[in-house]
Design a protein around this nucleic acid. Structure first.
Lengths: 252, 252
DNA sequence: TTAAGTCAATTGTCAGACAACTGAGAGAGC
DNA sequence: GCTCTCTCAGTTGTCTGACAATTGACTTAA
């Protein structure tokens, strides 16, 4: 009973199915029709009911479109989602993908005490010691972003950052693997540059900046990082795909 | 129970089911267990297979968590997603929910010709006639947003807007039901107010504004609306939940 | 007291069937 | 030839019933 004779890792059918479906959709040209459900179910080795459960998740994400009596079709605008705000990606990796040379300058690590505002956002007690990581990001030798991360020392100590830190706290935590990360709750604002930040970014005081204020959650649901990110307009483009919910219209 | 059991609702079962499930999940406290699938299916008047298809979409969005042999549980952080940028919601409805009084002023409808930039974004030929809808949105008698929508006249004619237009093109199109809407691709920028917009919003030229540039897609995949939306900082808060993709870390 | 076994409840998956809808081709009428 | 209607095969939408896998609580024996 407990033996698994020749089976490899026996992943649940649904999990494997999602992977197979994802690959199938990705390699099918947009607008093209997928095989019919009975055919697909047989070829993927699952029942039609299970297949349909999997398809629903892709339909909800807008990757496929199903038309009764006709078939299931792959929708375009796939890469859009990957570069959008839906996925948290470090500037370094993003720039790397589009072939832009970025470097980090002026890494300033300090220890601070949690003031009332920070303590509330990080959900720690007032006065707790915190690691404060600030740095300017340069693209083509021009400053384009100013990033500040604030974390408890038990999450990330100053000594750990002496080597192997490329400027992205998220990348660093992912690489370390502990704690596991889940989501980032990002607030989007437009602000005028105050003098200290203007000097760092080599712009005029009062110039417009895009400000992301983010809380990073571990997979246990705890807040493990609070960050401010100031971006110079024009050097980065942020976008988001928003679903239109026609349901709620009836409830108004 | 509410209404007649023999009523012939024209809405497709799955669409109605999504609405019912959404309401059920919203009014169930986080951490609480939902009724078992057989019970829920019977009470919602659908088969267990259809119910499970619906549940998959909510599970994919992280609103519920299912554990084999135990049950289905409501996950917290529900309101976050609903007020976030993931769902396109009109200012009117958003303000309505948070109890803010908004009104529309100075509705200016005009006809323009597509210039090169617009023609490319709307994917119509240069010189095509377009309906141009501009208006300022007031909250508590202060201007807080300036919205411009640009559409082909066959989508929305000037005459249609004479009655029943509350300021939201999206709400108007949803209510009309044709064409069906699917997604909005929204670009996020920080800009300085130019003089004409500063005058409309009663601010100083050069003050910071949050600018959303959006393309609205029909369910057929066509672009049916191009819009600029200028927001005064402080009156609206936009946020987005970003997933951390730990996979890509290995590919760098 | 502790450990192992039993069992009811719940989700996961499957097979088969029929309903609803679509598009294209066949055929009748002009 | 042309147009309109009808038929029909193909596809997705939904339902029914069943069994497998897993879990947590309860029972029982040492």
């Amino acid at each position: 009973m407990s033996g698994s004779p020749t089976s490899k890792t026996k992943r649940p059918p649904f999990s494997r199915l999602q992977n197979e479906l994802s690959r199938l959709i990705q390699r099918t040209p947009p607008g093209e029709k997928l095989p019919s459900e009975p055919v697909l179910a047989k070829s993927l080795g699952v029942s039609r009911a299970t297949l349909r459960e999997g398809m629903r998740t892709f339909e909800a994400r807008g990757l496929i479109r199903r038309r009764q009596g006709v078939g299931t079709f792959v929708v375009s605008q796939l890469k859009v989602i990957e570069t959008g705000l839906e996925v948290l990606e470090s500037i370094e990796r993003l720039a790397n993908r589009i072939g832009l040379a970025v470097r980090m300058g002026e890494l300033v690590i300090s220890e601070t005490m949690a003031n009332p505002e920070i303590s509330e956002r990080l959900q720690v007690e007032e006065g707790t010691r915190l690691t404060n990581i600030a740095r300017v990001i340069y693209a083509d030798d021009r400053p384009v972003a100013y990033l500040v991360d604030i974390l408890p020392p038990n999450i990330l100590a100053e000594s750990e950052l002496q080597s192997g830190f490329n400027g992205s706290v998220v990348d660093f935590l992912i690489q370390r693997g502990n704690p596991g990360l889940s989501k980032s709750f990002t607030d989007i604002q437009a602000v005028a540059a105050e003098s200290s930040i203007a000097r760092l970014l080599e712009i005029q005081r009062g110039d417009v900046l895009l400000l992301f204020t983010a809380r990073l959650y571990s997979d246990m649901g705890e807040i493990i990082d609070f960050s401010y990110s100031y971006f110079l307009p024009g050097y980065f483009r942020f976008h988001v795909v928003r679903n239109v919910d026609t349901h709620v219209a009836y409830n108004v």
